[in-house]
Design a protein around this nucleic acid. Structure first.
Lengths: 225, 225
DNA sequence: CGTCATTAATTGACTCGTCAATCAATAACT
DNA sequence: AGTTATTGATTGACGAGTCAATTAATGACG
């Protein structure tokens, strides 16, 4: 047997992949670069991963796992629905997701989803988890309206993430993060949107008694939930 | 002189670029492919565009121009703020933006923004235009809250676009658009979010008289506007 | 404790294909 | 005849994936 365990090598290679994608901003990174960054020979990457795409997907799974851990941790101490919503917003715009490496991985991951079924599966897994977390936190506040609202909030999180992540000020790899945009502003926006949605639901509930709107907001059922 | 005017050739090449990016889902398209698709020899692309990235950016500018024309047209006949908001939502999720080619261009464009300053400039141009349109339409309804709300609605549009665009059902290039997801659902969501935001603003205005909240929603000033 | 055989990780030179960009030749036009 | 678009063969570089050789472990046996 040789130096390191399979487990460790895979981790090293995945970490190197994320690092290199982060540095270059592209999936056009050579396996040699990645191997070098991981401190191994070019050939070894193919011993552990069948091809480049497999390696990328493994890297993306790793990013998703990190994000998931972040969310889980943030949700851990929460008791109220509002705390849970706050936790989700914070985690989505937290340092973990705003490292240049994570941004690069995410954006290129979206592009990969255009041509890789597996990437799309992974993406929809993320979507479902986020949606489920949001619904769980929203249900106590707005009952059956939770799924519908959650779909918008999920979209909002992704959209704002992309905007802040691709802001010229956020990028710039060196530590000269001068006017750096962190995610907290994004999290603020998300919480306001949630507040607005919840206020409106309550408003409508009160009014609908007197108003008797025949079809107050049709279902708009989505794929899951 | 030869067959076609410079103007025409450029258009052909740009159209071919968009077509090929759409077909492959990647920026990894060879200039030969593009040239062939445009009906010219491989070398000609470099006569009109200095290099590949320049060609991509020209293609993206073309997509943005199309989108802009769509929005402009949709806004043309409008009289009320609500009509304007409806027009923006419709255009953002209209057929123009949901062709596979446009989706592919957009998603890869986001990825390009990671490494190209010029792409980022273009992206922020799009952001500013959208924001400005939204503010213009929202101002009559919610006055000074328009810019803040517009930022969220803009983010929501982008996020939902990405979600519907990358939905497995939306993709699939052939015309077997069976359970095809079109954008209208996305547009519905955007309009609901706007409704919620506006309701909340009015709600707050009424309440704040009696309630006297010391700092009701701090400014959250953004880069533009 | 050595030493040798076995097993498996690791290496890195190599193959084979690909592609961006060039450029000398040519065709189309005035 | 002169000008300019257009061609397409070519170059030079690069990169994914392979593979035979090498190295490091393990343990069996003396």
């Amino acid at each position: 047997m040789a130096r390191k365990s399979e487990e460790e090598r895979r981790r090293d290679l995945i970490a190197a992949t994320i690092r290199e994608i982060g540095a270059s901003g592209t999936l056009n990174v050579t396996t040699s670069q990645i191997a070098k960054s991981a401190g191994v020979s070019p050939g070894l990457a193919f011993h552990y991963f069948t091809d480049k795409d497999t390696l990328f997907l493994a890297a993306m799974r790793s990013i998703l796992t990190e994000y998931r851990a972040d969310v889980t941790q943030a949700l851990a101490g929460t008791r109220t629905p509002d705390q849970r919503l706050h936790a989700i917003a914070q985690a989505s715009f937290g340092m973990t997701s705003f490292r240049r490496e994570a941004i690069s991985a995410w954006v290129n991951f979206y592009a990969l989803a255009l041509r890789s079924e597996e990437a799309r599966r992974l993406l929809s897994l993320y979507h479902r988890r986020l949606h489920s977390n949001l619904v769980h936190a929203l249900r106590p506040k707005i009952r059956e309206r939770a799924p519908d609202v959650a779909r918008r909030i999920g979209g909002l999180i992704d959209g704002l993430y992309l905007r802040y992540a691709l802001d010229t000020r956020t990028l710039r790899p060196p530590e000269e993060a001068v006017g750096a945009v962190d995610g907290s502003e994004g999290a603020q926006h998300v919480l306001r949107a949630i507040a607005a949605e919840c206020t409106e639901v309550h408003e409508n509930d009160e009014i609908s008694m007197a108003d008797a709107d025949p079809a107050p907001m049709a279902p708009l059922a989505g794929p899951q939930e």
